[in-house]
């Protein structure tokens, strides 16, 4: 996506509900470190995300961006520092971890839909088995969100019968069915054909317009300009630079950021 296109697109985004709270902290990461064995993969991470923020994390591969957001719902453990999500601190206490995960939706690069369940069952499974929602109610909610991502007609099919873009939209709907307070996106468009990226990004823009707190690891710089209120650049497991998108793209400060941007924005 070129810079020109994005600027045109930016005008179309409805910013009326995109409000960032001054007081309500959604995620607080304090002096956090993580190691894989001896490898120091995340170093000195400090990140406070306010309710309603839309954060894009960019950086070269291996910079720790995915690992960072996977720490936020404890798919990865951190070894030092604190991570507090919705006022619950993540520790080895599995009850608390599940409590956090119930309120934090996650969308993966490879969708990770459950291939043995229909689209509708994919969407109703967690509400029924985690929240104890009655089946009929869960199905109504699921259909509501499938309509929102514009594929209600696929509800009875299986994931294997859908295109990549459709699967990713189902994955988003599946997360939304849990009515999450925070959404994490781990390179949601990296595994998609070019023609399908837009349909997924449109859904994500729609979510942002409704005021969802989001952290997106993505290489879609157009999306970052359109909806993000903050762009974070990571390298070698550290946050190198963060700023508002306009400033970040037009006036990067750190040498590494400049190099990165010159490579991807030609």
């Amino acid at each position: 996506m070129s810079v020109q296109e994005t600027n045109q697109g930016a005008a179309a985004v409805d910013r009326s509900k995109m409000t960032v709270s001054d007081t309500d902290v959604a995620i607080d990461v304090v002096d956090m470190h993580k190691w894989y064995g001896d490898f120091h993969v995340l170093r000195d991470i400090n990140l406070r995300v306010m309710r309603g923020e839309r954060i894009v994390i960019a950086g070269p591969s291996g910079s720790g961006k995915s690992t960072l957001i996977r720490c936020v719902n404890r798919l990865e453990e951190h070894q030092k520092g604190q991570i507090i999500v919705n006022d619950v601190e993540l520790t080895s206490d599995l009850k608390r971890v599940d409590e956090v995960r119930r309120e934090v939706g996650m969308v993966f690069q490879h969708f990770n839909l459950f291939p043995h369940l229909s689209i509708l069952e994919n969407c109703t499974l967690a509400p029924i088995w985690v929240r104890g929602t009655p089946k009929a109610e869960a199905e109504a909610t699921a259909m509501h969100f499938l309509e929102r991502v514009k594929i209600p007609e696929q509800a009875l099919k299986f994931p294997g019968q859908l295109s990549g873009g459709q699967q990713q939209r189902v994955a988003i709907a599946r997360s939304l069915c849990m009515n999450p307070k925070i959404m994490l996106f781990d390179e949601p468009t990296s595994a998609l054909d070019p023609e399908m990226i837009k349909e997924v990004l449109d859904v994500m823009v729609g979510l942002a317009e409704e005021g969802m707190t989001m952290i997106c690891v993505t290489h879609e710089m157009g999306f970052a300009r359109q909806v993000a209120n903050r762009v974070i650049f990571m390298d070698q497991g550290q946050i190198i630079e963060q700023n508002e998108p306009e400033e970040f793209f037009s006036n990067p400060q750190h040498e590494r950021t400049k190099l990165f941007l010159s490579q991807i924005l030609h």
């Binding site: 719902n73 798919l75 599995l94 599940d98 409590e99 995960r101 119930r102 934090v104 939706g105 996650m106 993966f108 490879h110 990770n112 839909l113 459950f114 291939p115 043995h116 499974l125 967690a126 088995w129 985690v130 599946r174 997360s175 849990m178």
Partner: peptide, 29 residues
């Protein structure tokens, strides 16, 4: 794929629910 385990955990399913609802039906098949 590890993603199946992760997706199940990320939705808040505990170990036994993940196993019974997501992992074993696929693995046994």
């Amino acid at each position: 794929p590890r993603g199946q385990y992760e997706a199940a955990s990320a939705m808040g399913l505990n170990y036994w629910k993940s196993m019974l609802l997501i992992i074993l039906p696929q693995a046994l098949k």
